[in-house]
């Protein structure tokens, strides 16, 4: 078996990016963090209901990976996807309005937190079935291949999805048919409350992926440099080979699985230990040490993120409700509308 599952370590030494690019990625991570913190607060206040899954702690993965993709690529995400929608380009106000259940949300309040869709940025959801997005990404890649399009499909999913049949069927099909899929496994070590070693006989997820005869890379998901550089390399391999590549991002969520989770399954010390590796403070410290970021710049981008959040909340607060008379809308496509 050709196991090719250790990406070269990220270039040692300084962050290999121009200051503007590096600070831009940092700013995206901060935007996510501030949006998620506010979402938790709004959940407590009863403004957001249903399930709410926060991305706090995992920001480097979505930001580093999505910035390695093209606007033409197709993205499939999970129910923990606010960050992906935001980085991909959906307005924070639209995301917030959807979480409020407002008509001004991306799905007019029909989807909520777990179902953010955006045709304009080729975001194909927001999928609340674990593993449900993987076959979809395979099909999007198949369509691209059959229509001679250059776009690839990037599919985000968690370590929990690896136990699903959909994972195995999708990796097999993508490799068998040589389809341009980037499988992005956000391994945060727990499928809800079940630790990886309590659900997988083989906990090396790259070994599983490699068994389907595709390159499998691993990156430190707390280090945005490692995430971005590894993903860039993986994307290039997908584009050149027109076949699938698997990337495992080892990461950690700092918050509970959802707002109903008492976190009985993991020690507090483990959470605190991972927080020392938090992607925002480690990266900003690194940039500062390299003279690529000043404290004033950091405070400014943080203030901008907070202002964006405040605007988004104001937009959602001022939003309207989809009329109940339109309840049955969009079950089917209206006549005369092309899909």
């Amino acid at each position: 078996m050709n196991i090719d599952h250790h990406a070269p370590p990220p270039p040692a030494g300084p962050v290999p990016w121009q200051s503007d690019f590096a600070v831009g990625l940092l700013a995206d991570m901060v935007r996510i963090r501030r949006m998620e913190e506010k979402s938790a607060e709004l959940y407590g206040a009863g403004k957001i209901r249903g399930f709410l899954h926060l991305y706090i702690g995992e920001e480097a993965v979505a930001v580093g990976a999505l910035h390695a993709l093209s606007v033409e690529d197709n993205i499939v995400a999970t129910y923990r996807e606010h960050a992906h929608a935001l980085v991909r380009g959906m307005a924070m106000s639209t995301i917030m309005a959807e979480m409020y259940g407002r008509r001004e949300g991306c799905a007019h309040g029909r989807g909520g937190s777990m179902h953010l869709f955006d045709k304009a940025t080729r975001l194909f959801g927001g999928n609340a079935i674990v593993g449900g997005g993987l076959p979809l990404a395979v099909g999007l890649a198949l369509a691209a291949k059959m229509q001679n399009e250059n776009r690839i499909a990037a599919c985000f999913f968690g370590d929990g999805a690896v136990a699903e049949g959909a994972f195995h069927e999708s990796l097999n099909l993508a490799a068998l048919w040589k389809l341009p899929v980037l499988f992005c496994c956000e391994n945060n070590l727990y499928g809800m409350g079940t630790a990886l070693e309590r659900s997988e006989s083989q906990t090396d997820l790259c070994v599983k992926a490699a068994s389907y005869n595709m390159p499998a890379l691993r990156a430190d998901g707390m280090d945005i440099v490692a995430v971005h550089e590894t993903t860039k390399q993986a994307v290039q391999r997908v584009r050149e080979s027109r076949g699938p590549v698997f990337v495992e991002y080892q990461t950690y969520r700092f918050r509970a699985h959802s707002m109903f989770d008492a976190e009985l399954y993991r020690p507090k010390a483990e959470v605190e230990e991972w927080k020392t590796r938090g992607p925002i403070h480690t990266f900003s410290a690194r940039l500062k040490a390299e003279g690529k970021l000043t404290e004033e710049q950091f405070l400014a981008l943080d203030a901008a993120a907070n202002a964006e959040v405040a605007d988004a909340v104001a937009f959602a607060e001022a939003g309207t409700w989809e009329p109940v008379e339109d309840l049955l809308k969009d079950v089917h496509t209206p006549e005369g509308v092309a899909p």
Binding site: N74, F124, G132, L134, P135, L136, A137, V138, G139, L140, A141, L142, A143, A144, M146, Q147, A153, G165, A166, E169, S170, N172, L173, P339
Partner: peptide, 15 residues
């Protein structure tokens, strides 16, 4: 599961 899901993706992708 895999190929029906892939067909859904292909339909979304224009096929």
């Amino acid at each position: 599961l895999g190929f029906v899901g892939a067909a859904i993706g292909a339909a979304l992708g224009g096929m």
